[in-house]
Design a protein around this nucleic acid. Structure first.
Lengths: 153, 153
DNA sequence: ATTGAAAGCGTTATAATATAACATAACATT
DNA sequence: AATGTTATGTTATATTATAACGCTTTCAAT
């Protein structure tokens, strides 16, 4: 991850290209997620922004802002946790694909990956075998991260 | 699914074998999930039991009961939805394995399947490639069910 | 039968999460 | 400046989940 200013500047450009604005509050919320480096709930994020930037956010505001950031594909919502993370590709000029998310159940660090096409196809086939159809390939998986594996010993 | 009485009788035996009891309230909650045939939130289940059986349940009770039923592997909690479903194998005499869940995003019908070992291994490999380790193979996937696909047209 | 421990359940309060509804402010365009 | 649109503020409330404490039932051991 590059430094925060760069990230925000990049995100700002991204928003402008989409015909929308990355206002100060939105910047703060995004910064919060980028700095925390892990998944945060709306309320955790409120606390984080308060402590880190002195930014006081109402629940209503945070949810609105998070939805905006999600629409811009700058953050992702993890349904398994009901929490939000900054997109790992936030700095890439890269048409965003659907990702899969590895969530550390110990520290809530999140890794955004793309699973091999062959594996996804296999999965799809398993799903279709019972008459269902995969609606969204955004898989979320409970994992343990490298750091937490080591510290377990 | 066989008739409800059989299901309950079977579940009761299962609990006794585990040294625990399937009390009347627990039976009602389980029956609610079995009859509804889809994932229900704790509060939806309260409403359902009220309407269906005249059983009045406090939030505290329902959560306790759901936790019990989950420990007995008679129901599963779907983290993607924060809802509960009756285990599909509730009638089998079968050592319960970890399942994967296909959730219909339209009607919340749930299918419990076992994904091919080869596919799971592939998945695992993808996860390990980035230093993570799959903590639980209980995958939950947003899908569309057969019925909802047809009715879409 | 009595009793004591554990399990089950009731009750109240409250924490934590999320949204509805409506008012105001900021900004861009004409 | 007038207007429409987007963003934000504010208040209230809906929804989801748990803590804490105490009473009751069950059941095995005496």
């Amino acid at each position: 991850m590059q430094n925060l200013k760069q990230v925000i500047a990049h995100a700002e450009k991204h928003c402008i290209n989409n015909g929308s604005r990355l206002t100060l509050k939105r910047q703060r919320v995004l910064s919060g997620l980028v700095l925390s480096k892990r998944a945060l709930s709306a309320y955790e994020l409120i606390d984080f922004c308060k402590k880190e930037f002195g930014e006081t956010l109402q629940p209503m505001s945070i949810y609105r802002i998070l939805e905006f950031l999600k629409d811009q594909e700058l953050v992702h919502k993890l349904d398994l946790l009901n929490k939000y993370v900054a997109c790992e590709h936030i700095n890439c000029n890269y048409k965003h694909l659907v990702s899969q998310f590895l969530i550390c159940v110990k520290c809530q660090k999140v890794k955004e990956i793309h699973i091999d096409k062959s594996v996804m196809t296999g999965l799809q086939r398993n799903v279709e075998k019972v008459g269902f159809c995969l609606d969204s390939p955004q898989l979320e998986m409970n994992c343990i991260c490298d750091a937490c594996i080591s510290s377990q010993a």
